[in-house]
């Protein structure tokens, strides 16, 4: 097992006139699938762009497989692949040429694996890239990222626009990557249901900051949807680990993190008729980012 984290983000900050990312600390251990979720404009793509040098952070460091992303940019990119929006291969004309171009930069390129992926994704070398649909372009990006077996695969919305068959093939590949070969996948997605099934750890990014982070199962287990009745509502206004969602007279509704806000702490503050129910990752995401 590789002890060097696949991705290590420390005190990262990036500021634009209308948006600020961070300070952000995040560590992705090697051999895992790490899911990053967040609403539109939360800063997911900004974070990923910084990893690959598409803009530089205002503060903080990023290490990819132990390499500083700025100082050792070549080494960092030799171990990390990227799939995301705006990858435009039109200049190469045909899929075969795009593959040949990328192959020249990747000594570990696996032709047989590439051919198998092409069959799985239903694309061929003679097809013109300009005639590909959005989903097929995503498949091409995935193929170019997967075929050289990178140590870290960074995926920004990889399953948007691709059909159910290809999505299934993609997630199967992802599982192969991490379980058979001890490599790492860092995936940013709106498909929370998929992440809940496949990701070992997830983090929720909201307005440029990490709201919650942890093992997927543990996160879902430790958060509960709670409803209670209370006369003194102000007592629940700023309780750590409690996210108030709704108030209707004395009836309150919220999400509690049982690690930092045990149920009895609600009772101590005057809550009665406390009822709880488990959450899905999607419910948790909606509650934390509303």
């Amino acid at each position: 097992m590789n002890t060097i984290p696949a991705l290590e983000v420390s005190a990262l900050e990036k500021h634009y006139p209308s948006f600020g990312l961070g300070p952000l600390d995040l560590t992705v251990q090697a051999g895992s699938i790490y899911g990053l979720i967040g609403p539109n404009g939360a800063g997911k793509t900004t974070l990923i762009d910084q990893i690959f040098g598409m803009g530089s952070p205002d503060a903080g460091t990023i290490k990819v497989c132990g390499f500083d992303h700025a100082r050792d940019e070549v080494e960092a990119k030799q171990c990390a692949a990227y799939v995301g929006p705006g990858l435009n291969f039109d200049a190469w004309g045909k899929i075969g040429r795009a593959i040949r171009f990328n192959r020249g930069f990747r000594p570990t390129w696996d032709d047989a694996y590439c051919a198998r992926l092409m069959q799985d994704f239903g694309i061929s070398v003679d097809e013109r890239i300009g005639t590909l649909s959005f989903g097929e372009r995503t498949k091409l990006s995935l193929l170019l990222a997967l075929a050289w077996r990178p140590q870290l695969l960074v995926l920004d919305e990889p399953t948007t626009g691709i059909d159910a068959h290809s999505k299934k093939a993609f997630f199967a590949e992802m599982l192969n990557i991490v379980h058979d070969e001890s490599r790492t996948v860092f995936i940013s997605s709106h498909q929370i249901y998929d992440l809940e099934r496949f990701a070992d750890r997830v983090a929720v990014l909201h307005k440029g900051r990490l709201v919650v982070e942890g093992l997927t199962g543990e996160l879902v287990e430790r958060h509960l949807q709670a409803e209670w009745v209370a006369e003194n509502i102000e007592a629940f206004a700023h309780v750590p680990g409690l996210t108030l969602q709704e108030r209707d007279g004395p009836l309150c509704r919220g999400v509690i993190d049982t690690l930092t806000c045990p149920l009895n702490s609600l009772v101590q503050r005057g809550a009665r008729d406390v009822r709880t129910q488990p959450l899905t990752l999607e419910d948790l995401f909606l509650a934390l980012t509303q």
Binding site: A91, R100, F101, R103, G104, A115, M118, S124, V125
Partner: peptide
């Protein structure tokens, strides 16, 4: 699509120039 998809064979795209030389030629 203008032509039926050909079955991808290993190495079918590995011939010819790659990388920067291909960039120049393109």
């Amino acid at each position: 699509k203008t032509r039926p998809q050909a079955a991808a064979k290993p190495g079918v795209h590995s011939r010819g120039l790659t990388g920067i030389p291909l960039f120049v030629v393109t």
